[in-house]
Write a protein that binds this DNA or RNA. Sequence first.
DNA 1: GTTGACTCTGTACCTATGTACAGGCCTTAT
DNA 2: ATAAGGCCTGTACATAGGTACAGAGTCAAC
Lengths: 132, 132
Amino acid sequence: MRIGEVAASAGVNIQTVRFYERRGLLQEPPRLPSGYRVYQDQTPALIRFIKQAQSVGFTLNEIRELLQLRNGRVGNASQLRSIGEAKIRALDDEIQRLIEARDVLSQLLNACNCSDGGSECTVTIGRRERHL
Amino acid sequence: MRIGEVAASAGVNIQTVRFYERRGLLQEPPRLPSGYRVYQDQTPALIRFIKQAQSVGFTLNEIRELLQLRNGRVGNASQLRSIGEAKIRALDDEIQRLIEARDVLSQLLNACNCSDGGSECTVTIGRRERHL
DNA sequence: GTTGACTCTGTACCTATGTACAGGCCTTAT
DNA sequence: ATAAGGCCTGTACATAGGTACAGAGTCAAC
């Protein structure tokens, strides 16, 4: 497979494939005499894995480390598991943070004394005056 | 107040204050003959408002619009309210997305047959084989 | 009257994740 | 054999939100 087919099959841009190679997520593939990259059949699946890992919150740097562990020989399953557990905790924290932000904003809107004729939009929540 | 005092009082970098000015979040303040910026006493509170709005998910561009509306004369309260409600919906969507990501990852770890001696870490969720 | 702290402008750099373009080869079909 | 399309490298640009630095002017205290 050449790069165009890989990109189309994985649903990404050609530039993205080369970008992942530069970042060390994809190994440098062999080349034709012309310099064209030649990929194995499983490369699109690997790219889809990268996209899926991204969608659950991993950064490309973290994914590169996951892939290095996965390609390693022994003793890596428990490391993978602990990385995954750490990411779940990070997601929980972020979810909690967003829920709190949502509630602050919601209270602000509910408690607000705004009206189109009023000169200002002011409300007090907790000890502090807040505006929107 | 000069810029250093404003920045310290608001808990941000001096560069950040100038950055907000360039982005139109802070109006250009009057200057001393030397060119030094002179701020009003409420400027640190305005910067803290910006930081708070950021923390509940508004971007700087959105905050600039909020501030323009807030400084406007009439008929803006309902606009402010609908912007706030839209942001709440966006937060709800993002929270939902993260919860789903968290669950995918959690199922992956629970269902995984990994062990340090095993050659690979593979599990099937739904119709697709997934790895971590 | 000099030192040290503060401020000015302009520009460059940073993370993260790509996307786009220029200029030049390569391949394939007709 | 030629035109269309694919691929190569290198560089620049994009977003969002800052941070840092260079070189110069200013202010206040001793």
